[in-house]
Each structure stands twice: as C-alpha cells, then as structure tokens.
Amino acid sequence: MSIQHFRVALIPFFAAFCLPVFAHPETLVKVKDAEDQLGARVGYIELDLNSGKILESFRPEERFPMMSTFKVLLCGAVLSRVDAGQEQLGRRIHYSQNDLVKYSPVTEKHLTDGMTVRELCSAAITMSDNTAANLLLTTIGGPKELTAFLHNMGDHVTRLDRWEPELNEAIPNDERDTTMPAAMATTLRKLLTGELLTLASRQQLIDWMEADKVAGPLLRSALPAGWFIADKSGAGERGSRGIIAALGPDGKPSRIVVIYTTGSQATMDERNRQIAEIGASLIKHW
C-alpha cells in the first residue's frame, strides 16, 4: 500500500456533525475584513475531517454560486457509477468541435482521439476544463441527475441546474447552481471519507484534487512546506470566486475548508488575494 493510499485508508468514516464552535475567531475577523475589502458577501466554513465538527463558520447557510467547484461533486457521481459497475474509467468518449465550450484547454486538443472518462475527470478537476465537465454531465444524465445524486447522499441544498458555462452566471437571489458552505463542506467530507465511494474511488478523487493546477493563487499560496492540500477552485460572473479544499500539516488532510464570495467589483487578483489571506490566517491560527 502506497503512502497516499495509507493516508486515505486511515481517515475515519464518522458522520458526526456538531454545532458551531468558534475556535479561532482571528480567522473570522479576516473573513469579515475580506467582505469589507471586496464589498461582497463571503461564506466560510472549516470542518474537522475526522469528526465533522464545525471549527469556524461565517454565513454557513447562505447560498453562493458553486461555479467550477461542482466538478468535484460531478466526478464523485461518476466514480459512484464506476463502483456500481455502470461506468468504466477507461471508456473512451468521442466528441466534436460543436461540443467545445469556452475554456476547454485539454479537450480542445483531443478532438481526433477523444478522451477516457478518467482523463475527462482529471481535466475537469485539475484544469477546470468546461467541455470535460459537460461531457461527464452527459454520462450521468445531466445537471438534474447530479442534484439527485447529492439528494441521495443527504445534501438537499446543493443543486446544479445548467451546463458550462451558463452555470457561472451568479445572478443575485437566483438559487440555480448554488450551494451553502455548510452543505458543500459536509458533502465533500462524505465523498472523501464516507462509505459512499470505495476506497479506490475516494483515493482517486483526492488524487485529482491534489493535482489541481489552477488554484495556485488561493490557499496554496499560503501553504507552508510539508502541508497537504487537495482543492478545487471556481470563478464566475459578478465577482464570484470560490474554493473547496481538504488540507492539513504533516502531509495529510485533517480539515475541510470552503470559501465562497460573490457580488464584488474587485479584480480577480484582488479576490484571489483576499482568499489567500484568509488561508494565511487559518494556517497561522491552526
């Protein structure tokens, strides 16, 4: 068994979910400061990975656009189908120029040979490839089937209604394609530690997140040497930005962190900087 497989195998399969305990108010002060700096709502939650206990939260039950963070949930649904014998990671999917949508850096290079389901999930999570996400959504039956998958695992909040790139529209008070920080954190924890997926599929999902190549300016920029992070970022219209992550010291994950913001006029660089500063405070007061 590899070190990575050993790491995931040791994560307990508890489903406990406790009331908020504000253990590190310094980080919450930074979250509130980020709201002021961005002129926007910021949602934040931090869960203990083992117990599910809420360590910190701010606007945990307010809706925020999911943006590309939904791609982790999508690949979780795909892996669930693989575990059930309904899908194969090695199955090759062919597509055409007409299937390509905005921001598809991986799929646009494989119009001739197509891509396997495994490769599409990797592209969707590590590079946030939008066409890969749409092709994967098609394999499970579309956005409503992803919502149904989430409902079946106990998440009655998170919903996907549209395809890429329309799902990033982020209209105020529009519940389409949204989640809440508390719901997303709990669902991510179930996918990474629960019995919904096999150990091999849980390991595959966290491996894809660990290999994320487009979230460098966010939490990763604040991470000390030797820390572990597996994450997925998202960006949308109307100043929307977000990240979901499993992270921790000593090379293994010990907490789930979810950060969303929407409604800002700030630049992407400024949104990234504020999320990175929240991450720096989190690590400082770990």
Rank of each mutant, 00 (worst) to 15 (best):
I3G: 04
I3S: 09
H5S: 10
H5P: 06
R7D: 07
V8R: 11
L10S: 09
L10R: 03
L10F: 15
L10T: 09
I11V: 14
I11R: 03
I11M: 13
P12T: 13
P12H: 10
A15K: 03
A16H: 14
A16G: 15
F17C: 08
V21A: 15
F22T: 06
H24R: 12
T27M: 06
L28Q: 10
V29A: 15
K30T: 05
K30N: 06
D33G: 13
D36A: 14
G39A: 15
R41A: 08
V42G: 01
G43R: 00
G43E: 00
Y44V: 07
Y44T: 01
I45R: 02
L47V: 14
D48E: 09
L49R: 02
L55S: 06
E56L: 07
S57C: 09
E62G: 08
E62A: 11
R63P: 09
R63W: 03
P65K: 04
P65C: 03
M66V: 12
M66Q: 05
M67T: 14
T69A: 01
F70V: 11
V72D: 01
L73M: 10
L73S: 07
C75L: 04
A77W: 04
S80L: 12
S80G: 12
S80T: 10
R81A: 11
R81S: 13
R81H: 10
V82K: 05
A84C: 08
G85C: 07
E87V: 09
E87H: 04
Q88N: 15
Q88K: 13
Q88R: 13
Q88T: 13
L89T: 04
L89F: 08
L89E: 05
L89K: 04
L89I: 08
R91Q: 05
R92H: 13
I93Y: 06
I93F: 05
I93E: 03
H94L: 12
Y95C: 02
Y95F: 15
Y95D: 02
S96P: 08
S96Y: 12
S96A: 13
Q97W: 13
Q97T: 09
D99K: 12
D99A: 14
Y103A: 06
Y103T: 04
K109R: 10
H110Y: 08
M115V: 06
V117L: 15
R118S: 15
C121L: 05
A124P: 00
A124R: 00
A124T: 08
I125G: 00
I125V: 13
T126S: 14
T126I: 03
T126L: 08
N130T: 01
T131S: 14
A133D: 00
N134I: 02
L135Q: 07
L135N: 02
L135C: 04
L136R: 00
L136C: 03
L136S: 01
L137Q: 03
T138A: 15
I140F: 11
I140N: 03
P143R: 02
P143C: 06
E145M: 15
E145P: 11
E145D: 12
T147S: 13
A148G: 08
F149N: 06
N152H: 15
M153N: 13
T158L: 00
T158P: 00
R159G: 03
R159S: 08
R159H: 14
L160I: 14
L160V: 12
L160D: 02
D161E: 09
W163Q: 10
W163C: 13
E164G: 00
E164T: 00
P165E: 07
E166R: 14
E166T: 10
L167S: 05
L167R: 01
N168D: 06
N168Q: 02
N168H: 02
A170Q: 08
N173G: 10
D174V: 03
E175L: 14
E175M: 10
E175A: 14
R176P: 03
D177R: 00
T178R: 01
T179L: 00
T179I: 00
M180I: 13
P181Q: 00
P181S: 03
A182G: 15
A182R: 15
A182D: 13
A183S: 14
A183H: 11
A183T: 12
A185Q: 09
T186K: 14
T186N: 15
T186R: 15
L188I: 13
L188C: 09
L188M: 12
L188G: 03
R189Q: 14
L191H: 03
G194D: 10
L196K: 15
T198A: 09
A200D: 15
A200G: 13
A200R: 13
A200P: 15
A200W: 06
S201A: 11
S201R: 06
R202A: 12
R202V: 09
Q203R: 14
W208G: 01
D212G: 07
D212A: 04
D212V: 03
K213Q: 14
K213S: 10
V214C: 04
P217T: 13
P217R: 10
L218D: 02
L218E: 01
L218S: 02
L218H: 02
L219T: 03
L219D: 03
L219F: 08
R220Q: 04
R220E: 02
S221E: 12
S221I: 12
A222C: 11
L223E: 01
L223C: 12
L223I: 14
P224D: 07
P224Q: 06
G226D: 11
G226P: 07
W227R: 00
F228S: 07
A230T: 01
K232R: 06
K232E: 00
S233Y: 00
G234C: 05
A235C: 02
G236A: 10
E237R: 09
R238C: 12
R238M: 13
R238K: 14
G239V: 00
G239P: 00
S240L: 01
R241S: 07
R241G: 04
I243L: 12
I243M: 07
I243N: 01
I243V: 12
I243C: 09
I244G: 01
I244C: 08
I244N: 01
I244P: 00
A246R: 01
A246P: 00
A246Q: 05
A246W: 05
L247V: 14
L247T: 07
L247S: 06
G248A: 02
G248E: 01
G248R: 00
P249A: 07
P249S: 08
D250S: 09
G251V: 08
G251R: 10
G251C: 11
K252N: 07
P253S: 11
S254Y: 12
R255E: 02
I256L: 09
I256D: 00
V258G: 04
I259Y: 03
T262D: 08
G263W: 05
G263A: 10
Q265H: 15
Q265L: 13
A266G: 13
A266V: 12
T267A: 11
M268K: 05
M268I: 11
M268C: 05
D269G: 12
D269M: 11
D269A: 12
N272G: 05
E277A: 12
G279A: 11
I283G: 03
I283D: 03
I283Q: 05
I283R: 05
K284R: 13
K284T: 09
H285G: 12
H285C: 14
H285A: 10
W286L: 09
